[in-house]
Design a protein around this nucleic acid. Sequence first.
DNA 1: CTGAAAGCGCTTACAG
DNA 2: CTGAAAGCGCTTACAG
Lengths: 356, 356
Amino acid sequence: MKGDKRTSPNKIYDVAGAAGVSLATVSRVLNHPEKVKPATREKIEKIIKELGYKPNLNAKGLASSKSTTVAIVVPELTRSSIAGMVDGIAATAKRRGYLLRLFVNNTSNDEDAVANERELWRTVISSGVDGILYINDEIDDDYLEIIKDSSVSVVLTNSVCSDAEIPSVAIDYKKAAYEMTKEMISRGNKKIWIISTVKKYAVNDLKVKGYEEAMEEAGLEARVINVSGKTYLNEKAYHEILLEDHPDVAIVVRDSMAVSFINVARELQISIPDEMQVIGFQNTKYAELSRPTLTCINTPIYEIGEAAMDLLTDLMHEAEYEDEYYYLDQPKEEPREEIKINKNVDYSIVWRQSTK
Amino acid sequence: MKGDKRTSPNKIYDVAGAAGVSLATVSRVLNHPEKVKPATREKIEKIIKELGYKPNLNAKGLASSKSTTVAIVVPELTRSSIAGMVDGIAATAKRRGYLLRLFVNNTSNDEDAVANERELWRTVISSGVDGILYINDEIDDDYLEIIKDSSVSVVLTNSVCSDAEIPSVAIDYKKAAYEMTKEMISRGNKKIWIISTVKKYAVNDLKVKGYEEAMEEAGLEARVINVSGKTYLNEKAYHEILLEDHPDVAIVVRDSMAVSFINVARELQISIPDEMQVIGFQNTKYAELSRPTLTCINTPIYEIGEAAMDLLTDLMHEAEYEDEYYYLDQPKEEPREEIKINKNVDYSIVWRQSTK
DNA sequence: CTGAAAGCGCTTACAG
DNA sequence: CTGAAAGCGCTTACAG
């Protein structure tokens, strides 16, 4: 369906020709405008706009090894809060002049996980990106080496990792769970459970840990219940559990799972929040579509995406800057403001009908 | 943080050196393996694997103008079903050997929409992709020219467009609504309403049209109600409406909006499904978390993504093939199987508690 | 079947 | 401040 030959896009030569300058000057206007005489620059800028000229990114990337593109590596986008994060990343990327490559790392966890991971990183690097936003629920310790080996900057985004030398942006889930648990204890509740996932997720482990710490400090007995994230499975489990007993407060690591829990409790005539209160993490639309509506620890996923892309941009700029000095082979004067490489984004609490 | 100079990735020269052949031969193994003697090929393939060599995509893209990358252009990923579609696209892209660039076309609709759109397409094209999956709820007629002007293949993905010459993959929403309405009429219901969005979405217009057609055929009065997609806004509207009157059946264009509708109805003591039945489109997790659970027209969004990427791949291959014959300047023998450029993906119906 | 060489569209020291 | 030229890492006719 391409028989008709479309007008091919303008090249830098076309701009240079139209402006009566060499292509080097056009390139400078694009990359180092301060090096071009204002009059020349303005003339060229006008022509660029008129022609709608955009430099070919493959050529630019090859010539300068700067593609102004970053990679986002994610598990499935439908997973909990990934999509919101990517939206935050995309908005910031646009603002800071970067394009995005998307890698959906959807490998069913087979035996060769580490080899697969290494292969993935090679693919990402060879695609010619300037930086990587890495999102992974469970970062195996074996991956750390791969990550650190990367020739471009990497920022772990909402991912837990044991190595503080790797730049990261996240939420302090442990503190959130700890404080929420303390709050509910201070309100006089003693029997507080936490409901987490059967599948091991590092972020959920943190929530459990924060909960356990608060319970221990208060001398209360902790009870951790692990269920499936799938509604039709966890509802069965909830049913069995609630038939036997229920707590004063249930803290659930994901709001969709909390809504299921509420649904099953109501079917068993357990009144919420009077007999049992329920709290979820995340604060998605599920929370307001639930009846009663769900109290949530609101984890601002979009802002995590924004902060991660901001941090990555800063790191990429810093790397450029250091390269210059490396080349000049002289000590840097006035070292730049140190970049804080491990950032926490604030969470908040949205009180709704499922608590009293 | 990059002071340590990391081992730079292997180049094609490294492979050629290790194999004792010229880089041209290595390139051939990568791109036209059938042109290389099996013994040579195997030796080179082994070395490629050992070295973990991956061709630099920028260089490949520049030299061959084939980047094995396609662009996905989407509005926000958090929008209804975009994330699931992108997962389907990503899975198929991986299977068929393509990487992805992601463009989030999140322009607040200002006055210069067409100019923005043209700029976006220039950015996408100049990024050097081989094809584009275009996802847009509302394709302005002014965009058609931009789309058709594209120098690479484009597939509209779950997007309604008046021009059948543009390849597309979608669901026949009109038919789905038509058939569902007929079904509910045949079950003896007469007072059937449809609830759509205030904001104009082409896909929702189709659902309304299908509903209206079925109602008209049956000599029944159609009633279209438009509300906000936002829960806190539509609940107010629902409340006012339901205080006055309610239908036998409500068909709602989005399942999250259907769940809100159910919630408000129950607060007003309208029993579901006995007094009123509710049906949603989409079948996301909202449907099973609702009480009563929600009957849905299941629109398989992941499959749409898969089918769209498959179609795009076929079109890109066809374009390549045609280019070859164009070059040879001779008529093609045995014309290939014609590619069907407008595909519909099947929907299904999931009956749950909100209907009887 | 394989190698030498040109070229893809840019960027960037190097001269001037 | 600007231009000529080399080079980024590949692919692909063209010879052999």
